[in-house]
Design a protein around this nucleic acid. Structure first.
Lengths: 201, 201
DNA sequence: TGCTTTCCTGAACAGTGGTCAGTATCCTGA
DNA sequence: TCAGGATACTGACCACTGTTCAGGAAAGCA
């Protein structure tokens, strides 16, 4: 029995394959129709299995989409890290601005992912621990302070203020797409730059 | 038949009474349980009528809650207008800061209302026309520019940047209440002040 | 081949928002 | 006062949702 469990069996591989195809179908459906617009039954139909089967791979609908969101943000983190890497030694303040714009762009490019991650209230869900992305921002802000580019203040207050500004314009653009927005890029730039400038020494 | 319709009948009054009691029960339920947490059947039970009856007063669930939100924002507008009135002739920039804080406070004091108004995506809903509150902000920003306190720029870019900042911190605090926030008041002040300072001449 | 373990599914459950034919209620004009 | 007509209301119903579970199908091992 032990040997069955640990051997990388046909069954085990098949299980992983199914899991991945669920995730991919879910991503497609989710990106197109949003959380409420996807039903487990229709999803199962696309995958080609019974809807009950989905529950053998994911505890419930939320868990499935949580998994997708995590994947997406991991990708985002990778992109962000690459950006930090390539700009190592450069102007940290410019990097904050760039990261802020990248954050907004990511949200606008993946509105349904962003919606699920930061626009939906999910009472009784896991406590909101800081995401890797936030920790990266924290580190960057700290560096700006060490190099005396930002004035001395609580790192968290500064980081959270930056996050709030970037999130504000991202979420409004997603939620109110038909609002008579002025030039979007200028609004985004204004929001991000003002938030950054507000921290300068 | 005409006289029936216009006469302030017993029936007509009763209709209005029921409509109001629906709205009040809905407000209570909605504030406690959020949009998804309220079902039309349970709501009808509280009101004391059949759930089908609700649909004779409101086209659907969304229309019912749209009505509530409109009421709430009317209240918000009244409060904000009074503030503008009382500070007329005073420092317009200080007024913008005050309005920004008031906006955030309102949102935090009425999270479920705010959620429905600005946190929920409702595809295919009526085009998002600017709300009275936004128009008030626009006017205030214009005044700041006329008095040369804000630098010359597109009024909408400036107004929308301010709105985005205030919305950003409001929505994050509502959606992520368990995030390890720094001192909330300081974060709010930082976000609002940075957004305002970013417009100064 | 039998036996065990693991996988998978159809049916069922309790709930949702929304509709509609039919009934109960009220108002009006004779 | 009473019949007729307009109005208000409801129970039953529809198509759907997320989720569970007994039991059948399939695979691995002896």
């Amino acid at each position: 029995m032990r040997s069955q469990a640990e051997g990388s069996n046909f069954r085990e591989r098949a299980r992983d394959v199914l899991r991945r195809s669920i995730l991919e179908a879910a991503r497609k459906a989710f990106v197109r129709d949003g959380y409420e617009g996807v039903s487990m039954r229709r999803l199962a139909e696309r995958v080609g299995c019974s809807h009950a089967n989905l529950y053998l791979h994911f505890r419930d609908k939320e868990a499935l989409f949580d998994c997708l969101v995590e994947e997406s943000f991991d990708e985002f983190d990778v992109g962000l890290k690459a950006m930090f890497q390539s700009a190592r030694g450069g102007d940290p303040v410019a990097l904050v601005r760039k990261a802020g714009r990248a954050y907004v762009e990511f949200g606008l490019a993946n509105p349904n992912i962003y919606e699920f991650a930061f626009l939906m209230r999910r009472p009784g869900r896991k406590p909101d621990k800081p995401h890797v992305t936030y920790e990266g921002l924290q580190a960057l802000v700290r560096r700006c302070m060490q190099e005396k580019r930002f004035r001395r203040m609580d790192v968290d207050v500064a980081s959270q203020a930056l996050w709030a500004a970037a999130h504000g314009i991202t979420s409004l653009l997603i939620i109110r797409p038909h609002f008579p927005w002025a030039d979007r890029d200028r609004v985004i730039a204004q929001v991000v730059d003002a938030a950054v400038d507000g921290l300068l020494a």
